[in-house]
């Protein structure tokens, strides 16, 4: 029996270890090693921090990195602010069938490819698009308005794309808060604001944290939305990675960029978990 259990353990452990080592751990170590390489001749390399120095000394790279980080944080915050009242409505105000219908309605857009969603916003926002035409028709604008190709358009796209990943964890945690607890808050003389601040939000914190982590990560790593909705000046860090890898074929610098993006996202995720005292297992699993 003991031997059988051991064989079973080894058999089940093999796929997991193969997957994690060959597709996750070793490739990332390798990417880090490549990022530490500097080309000195044809096929000749030496170890040096040159790629990271390039990143630090080139204002365009540094600025794009900071811009991407800040805009991803802003997108996360906006998504949270928009999603919280809606999630609360679904979890606590709606009842029975309405609740499941509304929840399902939230999920539907995300069964569709991100490309299609972005395409939808392009049709809405472009110069010949729906909103521009509507504004002219209403007399609010006397010529076509271009709303595409700027940072605001990127923000709309990012918030829209990540909405689901905020709504689902929020609804799940809010549903687990018994109605009686909220009623008790009011009975004890609480106002809308104080009940929200002292009962609902503390209870929803795990959902807020996991939603924010996922949304931040998705926004930071997004390529499609900034490329399609952003303009010439609104570079996103992932676009730099892509251009180093595919267009310029400078894999060393591209790998350094990739590692920096990974570092930034890990730092923020770790910081958020640390700040709220949660662990990755509880938040994601």
């Amino acid at each position: 029996m003991k031997a059988e259990a051991r064989i079973g353990l080894i058999l089940l452990l093999t796929p997991l270890l193969l997957w994690l080592s060959l597709l996750i751990v070793i490739p990332h170590i390798d990417m880090f090693l490549v990022s530490l390489r500097e080309r000195v001749g044809v096929g000749e390399y030496r170890i040096s921090p040159a790629n990271y120095l390039t990143f630090l000394t080139e204002p365009l790279y540094l600025r794009t990195f900071a811009r991407t980080a800040i805009m991803a944080m802003l997108a996360t915050l906006i998504t949270l602010l928009i999603a919280f009242p809606v999630s609360y409505y679904i979890a606590k105000m709606a009842r029975g069938r309405t609740r499941s219908a509304l929840f399902l309605l939230c999920l539907v857009p995300f069964w569709v490819s991100e490309l299609v969603r972005t395409f939808g916003w392009m049709i809405l926002l472009r110069e010949t698009g729906l909103i521009s035409t509507l504004l002219q028709w209403a007399g609010l604008a006397d010529q076509p308005v271009e709303m595409l190709y700027n940072d605001a358009a990127i923000m709309v796209g990012l918030v829209y794309t990540s909405m689901l990943f905020m709504v689902v964890p929020l609804v799940t945690t809010l549903e687990s808060l018994p109605d009686e607890v909220i009623e008790a808050g009011y009975d004890l003389g609480g106002t809308n604001v104080s009940v929200m601040r002292e009962i609902v939000i503390p209870h929803a914190t795990p959902g807020i944290v996991s939603g924010c982590i996922v949304v931040f990560m998705l926004s930071l790593g997004n390529y499609l939305t900034p490329t399609m909705l952003g303009g010439k000046d609104s570079l996103w860090f992932t676009e730099l990675i892509y251009s180093q890898f595919i267009v310029r074929f400078n894999w060393e610098l591209g790998a350094a960029f990739g590692f920096l993006l990974l570092l930034l996202s890990s730092l923020i995720v770790w910081g958020m978990l640390r700040l709220t005292g949660h662990t990755l297992e509880r938040t994601m699993g």
Binding site: L16, P27, H28, G221, Y242, W251, S265
Partner: peptide
């Protein structure tokens, strides 16, 4: 088994790695 907790965390990691980084690391390797 020993190391199970750590392995579980590793198993969750792909969810918090940006997709484009996953792509380039596999490409490089």
């Amino acid at each position: 088994f020993p190391g199970q907790g750590i392995l579980y965390v590793f198993m969750l990691l792909p969810l918090v790695i940006p997709g484009i980084v996953l792509g380039i690391s596999i490409l490089v390797f």
